[in-house]
Each structure stands twice: as structure tokens, then as C-alpha cells.
């Protein structure tokens, strides 16, 4: 790891001023420090955000949804009484995310901004497409954990457990930079790397996530998160499914279905959600929706099983909303 300077400002304004070229924001560090150790990030300076008090905490205001500060530790999200009561899908998504230590260190903002775990990308000795190279080595290489859908030049998968759950909750992220603030749907925050866009997030240089907002309407849905892993803990999702729906009189409406681990971005297909509108989320409806989600899947040599798994996890997640 090369040398860098460090600052821990106490105010957001100060932090934004410090964030210029060659500077990277540090929160929990669970991803950034590993990227730096493998030469995948080489900042001149780190701006440690953890001294900024205003960016931490979960607030629930009747009628105004939920606000989660970007610096809130994942373990605090997991244990939040407000969330467990009003939006259990979010704490549920973190239950099997990484480890207790990483959830203590990691923050909401950092989780949403974590980079992919592709083993070619993470290997500093491999110059893959995403790092400016000519090709994606996974396409004809070792691809059991890679994307089955939605990939262009790069077959990474979105690794976050939190992101699908938040997208299924219609979350928006508030971003700040020294130039101002903006708010975008979390779903639009992720980009599948392609063309000139060799990155996974729509964040701009000098910008920070300050807050995640969940609208009141999303709290009326029932939601669940299921995750398939290779071992029983401490694995990234092979496939994960966040599902949410308004359920009344045995009928579902306003369905959200977001998959992790199968595409370069959290994978949401609105057409599949519409298939489920007005159904009782019976097996047939669920599998029909799964087929719409996976219609364009083009598995690689070793990851066809992900399609089988995704189909079944979609069915299970949706079915459980009725129980």
C-alpha cells in the first residue's frame, strides 16, 4: 500500500472541500483498504468521514418515510427497532451479509458503493477490461460466480445484499458534493459497465452519499430477502432475491422484485413485477415472473446453475409474502 495523507473532518462541508482529485472518502474501510492493498485504489489522501456526526442514524417520521444516514453502521441497521418494525426487509438483508465485524465497521454508504468481487478484477496481476484492459477474462475463464444476465463487456455481479432490499423499498440516495446536492433513485445509481463507462456506480468525482431515503408508501409493502450462499455464512450471494408487495385479500399488487448476484447491477425487471399484479403469488404466477426476469439470461460455461437457483429463489421469496 503506497503512502497517503489522512484527515478526519467534523463537518460535511469540510469533508467535501477536502475531496478533490486523488482523494478518496473513507468510512468503514472494509472494501477501500483491501482495494488499496491490492493496488486497485491509490489515493494521495483519505478523508475519513466517521467524525461527521450528522450522517449517522435512522429516523422514522410518521408520514415521511425513513431516513438512514450514510455513515450508519450496518450492524445498527440490522438491529434498528424502527426498521425491524417498519421495514424488516432491510435488516433481514444484512443478517447474512459478511460477518459481525464487517457489519460493525461497514456503513450503509460504503455498502452501496462497494466494488465488485470478481476474482479477475481483484487480482492485481490481471489487467481486465474493467481496469482498462482489452477483455473480460471471465467470459472464457473461471466464471461459476459471474453474471448470467445484463452483462456487456464485463461479467461482474453486484455483490451488495443491502442494495436489492433497498431498491425493492423504492429507496433514493441523496448525494452531496462541493457543487451541490442531488437525489436519485437507488436503482439508477448502479450502472452495468460498458463502453466508456468502466465503473459500477453513477457517483461523480467529489460526491458522497449522505442519506438513504425510503418513502412512506414503501413501508406499506410486505418484503423479504433470501440469499443462496456456497457456505452457511460469510459468503457473497450466488443469487439473492429481494421481494416486496402490497398484499390485500390474498392478492398482491405494487410488487417489487430485485435480484442480486446475477447481473452487474441489482437486477430489476418491471415487466416481471407487472405479471404478478393481482395474483395470489401462487407457484404458477411466481414461476411466470421468474421466467420474465430470466428471459434474456445467457449463462457462461460454469454458471448455468444460477438460473435454476434464481428461478427457485424468486418463487420462494414471493410465496413467502403470502404466508
Amino acid at each position: 500500500m503506497s503512502l497517503f495523507a489522512y484527515a478526519r473532518p467534523k463537518a460535511l462541508g469540510e469533508a467535501l472541500k477536502l475531496l478533490k482529485n486523488g482523494t478518496i472518502a473513507l468510512a468503514g474501510g472494509t472494501d477501500l483498504i483491501t482495494l488499496m492493498r491490492h493496488g486497485l485504489a491509490e489515493p494521495d489522501a483519505l478523508v475519513d468521514l466517521t467524525g461527521i456526526e450528522g450522517l449517522r442514524g435512522i429516523t422514522r417520521e410518521k408520514g415521511r418515510g425513513i431516513r438512514i444516514g450514510a455513515l450508519t453502521a450496518l450492524s445498527d441497521v440490522e438491529a434498528s427497532a424502527d426498521l425491524l418494525r417498519s421495514l424488516p426487509i432491510v435488516p433481514e438483508s444484512l443478517r447474512d451479509a459478511a460477518t459481525p465485524q464487517i457489519r460493525n465497521m461497514g456503513t450503509v454508504g460504503g455498502n452501496l458503493l462497494q466494488r465488485n468481487r470478481c476474482w479477475y478484477f481483484r487480482d492485481e496481476g490481471v489487467q481486465c477490461w474493467l481496469k482498462g484492459g482489452k477483455r473480460c477474462f471471465a467470459v472464457d475463464g473461471e466464471n461459476r460466480y459471474h453474471a448470467v444476465i445484463g452483462a456487456h463487456e464485463c461479467w461482474i455481479v453486484s455483490p451488495s445484499d443491502l442494495a436489492p432490499a433497498l431498491i425493492a423499498s423504492d429507496a433514493e440516495v441523496e448525494l452531496a458534493s462541493s457543487l451541490g446536492r442531488r437525489r436519485i433513485p437507488l436503482a439508477g445509481f448502479y450502472v452495468a459497465p460498458s463502453g466508456k463507462q468502466r465503473k459500477e456506480h453513477a457517483i461523480r468525482r467529489g460526491e458522497l452519499i449522505t442519506t438513504v431515503r425510503i418513502p412512506e408508501k414503501a413501508l406499506e409493502r410486505k418484503g423479504t430477502y433470501v440469499k443462496a450462499m456456497e457456505r452457511k455464512a460469510w459468503s457473497f450471494a450466488i443469487v439473492s432475491v429481494a421481494a416486496a408487495a402490497r398484499v390485500r385479500d390474498g392478492k398482491a399488487s405494487d410488487v417489487r422484485l430485485v435480484l442480486g448476484g446475477i447481473a452487474p447491477i441489482p437486477w430489476r425487471v418491471p415487466a416481471a413485477e407487472r405479471v404478478l399484479d393481482g395474483t395470489s403469488l401462487d407457484d404458477n404466477a411466481c414461476l411466470a415472473a421468474a421466467d420474465v426476469v430470466l428471459k434474456d439470461a445467457t449463462p457462461l460455461r460454469d454458471n448455468g446453475y444460477k438460473v435454476t437457483l434464481a428461478r427457485e429463489l424468486v418463487r420462494r421469496a414471493l410465496r413467502s409474502l403470502m404466508s
Binding site: R117, W119, Y120, D123, G125, V126, F137, D140, G141, E142, R144, Y145
Partner: peptide, 16 residues
């Protein structure tokens, strides 16, 4: 897991 073309061990760590 070894990439046949590169000859590299892709999971010489405790992550994968």
C-alpha cells in the same frame, strides 16, 4: 480455482 489460460490461482485467499 485456476484459470487455465493465465495459469493463475483465482482464489488464493480466504474469500473465495
Amino acid at each position: 480455482v485456476v484459470d487455465r489460460g493465465l495459469g493463475r490461482v483465482m482464489n488464493a485467499n480466504l474469500e473465495w
